[in-house]
Amino acid sequence: MEVKDIIKEENLVYTKSKILTDKVFHYCPGCSHGVVHKLIAEVIEEMDIQEKTIAISPVGCSVLAYNYLAVDWQEAAHGRAPALATAVSRLMPDKYVFAYQGDGDLASIGTAEIIHACNRGENIVIIFINNGIYGMTGGQMAPTTLEGMPTSTSPYGRDVKLAGHPLKITDLIAQLPGTEYVTRQAVHTPAAVRKCKKAILKAFQNVGKKNGTQFIEVVSTCNSGWKLSPVKANEWMVENMFPVYPLGDLKG
């Protein structure tokens, strides 16, 4: 059987979600953002909630996320996405509201907003991309940067005496009674991608039940910031990030 006989419409088993626009991602080759964007798009498509979804993008690499998913978007100030999401969800309680944030946005400048939104149990989904670095501004130290990990503002590696410890904010979030589902996922292998999608689907489905905040951390790579190839970055993540940020459900 020839390839041309296989590549036919009726044999198509995997393609781009219709919720994704035709714009080319501005992300670097191999960036985890693209995979997570895709999974959210697939969940929105499968749940048929495009009309009911309001998305909030952060400041960071994913500031332009609004170019890629065909849902209504609000672009927040740095760290404030949970505050916007709070208001949207309170004012339009039948909507599926999600905030998409990176580690600098969520775990540094926006710590108060995320902790209090989760503590109030806002009926929203938080997607938290943790790659341990500030990607957009060129690879500076993030709150989640690992001990000893070099960045442009910790060029000799993160010194915990100087800069404190990697912030395991998801562990803190899981302690809050306002959260219903708190999980830590990754998208480095096909199996991990499938699991992460299940987690995102569960979170969005939970929104309909209004039992609290849904929080998904995705431990991710920033191969440009880490100065590794995409494949090597995944290996580095498994070896170094996962021991500090172990995958699995923390709650719910």
Binding site: K8, L12, V13, Y14, Y27, V187, P190
Partner: peptide, 30 residues
């Protein structure tokens, strides 16, 4: 690109991990 097309089983793993959603996967029982 498919260097060894005859080995493809259409498992879609490539599509799943693709950050840019540029891979369509086809599968057929032959």
């Amino acid at each position: 690109y498919m260097e060894v097309p005859e080995a493809c089983t259409g498992c879609a793993n490539c599509g799943l991990v693709c950050p840019d959603s540029v891979i369509d996967v086809y599968r057929v029982k032959a």
